[in-house]
Nucleic acid binder design. Structure first.
Lengths: 205, 205
DNA sequence: TCGGAGACCTAGATATTCTGAGTCTCATCG
DNA sequence: CGATGAGACTCAGAATATCTAGGTCTCCGA
């Protein structure tokens, strides 16, 4: 079975970049640096042998090939996402119960996670806790802490806080940790929460 | 935009393994070891939180989840492949002109590449040569050599020959090199040729 | 003529993936 | 029965791929 398949990673990056028409914005959505986006897009273009973006002085534009490709790729991701959710039905559509520790709340907006309607759609409620055991026993779906670990079998996503260079010379910069069971690691709910965290962490004042 | 997306790599492995109902056969189709297949499948199962295969004493079976997933994933790959080919139209359907060096022919079946109907569908003709310049100037689409390199900008795929341990104690084991322009690296034609090579290399006698 | 924004480049760090060698279980065969 | 072979699995380390950090460049607007 021979398919022409670019790497999924480069396609995800392309999709985000094309949607925003900005490598920088795409980078922040994906939680990587702009350089990484630039590299992945270049790699995709090289592997296809076709340019997907026109780099103009003002900003980006899609080429004809890019315009043609984008909707198809978006569709592929939607199909894939749907197929994947269809075989993990117990997760599908369920709202998450989130655990958050006090130190994490300190770097998040007031009354997080209810500050934002998009996020609220994925959240049943949230409890103040720092206890990883609650994740293991399914009492909560995920836990958000500032630093800590290791967490053994559990899946961990790391969200850097805006580095406050005045305060953190030499010590570890503080990071948010998103912890859940491996099977929940990349479901919609988790991704929505992590994306929201990335967009809203603030430096401690 | 939040999707539930397992890594494409694990999905390709799953698709091949499910189609063959054998990790070993899948491994050889993909050109990797059986251990790698086992690991990727395990990783996919962990990330989904669902088993896809039932490991029986006799062999493999798909679980219900696996049965449900397989056709959808196959479809996704086909769509992706088609979308990708649609934006690189100059390649689409064209038959390749292949360059082969004598030393490579020595480890290939008699009258390769015309030994096999599947492969013939992708081949216009083949010429005896060892000159990488012909790839750069588009005189040929790809070149197959035994060893050599480096090839600069060109894309390289490596096909190990069955290791003949009696003869190669200490020296490099001979390898087939498939060389083409980056834009042709993962098109159907190239993949078909490489897959065929992997299946048919023999040890020099 | 600055200064900021954003794309790009390169080197080195980090993470992922693959290999290679060894283990285990079961099925087949003498 | 024990020997043999096939195939899945595991683990450490090697090979790749990917990301970061820091610097350059160009364009734009003040």
């Amino acid at each position: 079975m021979t398919y022409r398949l670019p790497s999924l990673n480069t396609l995800r990056v392309f999709e985000a970049a094309a949607r925003h028409l900005s490598f920088k914005t795409a980078a922040s959505e994906l939680g990587v640096t702009a350089g990484a986006v630039s590299q992945q897009v270049k790699k995709l273009e090289a592997s296809l042998g076709v340019d997907l973006f026109r780099r103009l002085p003002h900003g980006l534009l899609l080429t004809v090939a890019g315009e043609t490709y984008l909707p198809k790729i978006t569709q592929v991701f939607e199909d894939l996402s749907e197929a994947t959710e269809s075989i993990a039905p117990e997760i599908n559509g369920r709202k998450f119960t989130i655990g958050v520790c006090d130190r994490a709340l300190a770097v998040l907006p007031p009354n997080w996670p209810l500050h934002d309607d998009t996020l609220k759609a994925h959240v049943r409620d949230s409890v103040r806790t720092t206890d990883v055991e609650l994740v293991r026993t399914d009492a909560i779906d995920c836990l958000i802490r500032l630093g800590g670990g290791p967490y053994g079998e559990l899946a961990l996503e790391t969200i850097p806080t805006p580095s406050d260079t005045r305060q953190h010379t030499g010590e570890h910069p503080p990071e948010l940790h998103f912890i859940c069971k491996p099977g929940l690691a990349d479901c919609r709910q988790s991704r929505a929460i992590v994306e929201d965290l990335r967009g809203h962490v603030v430096s401690r004042s």
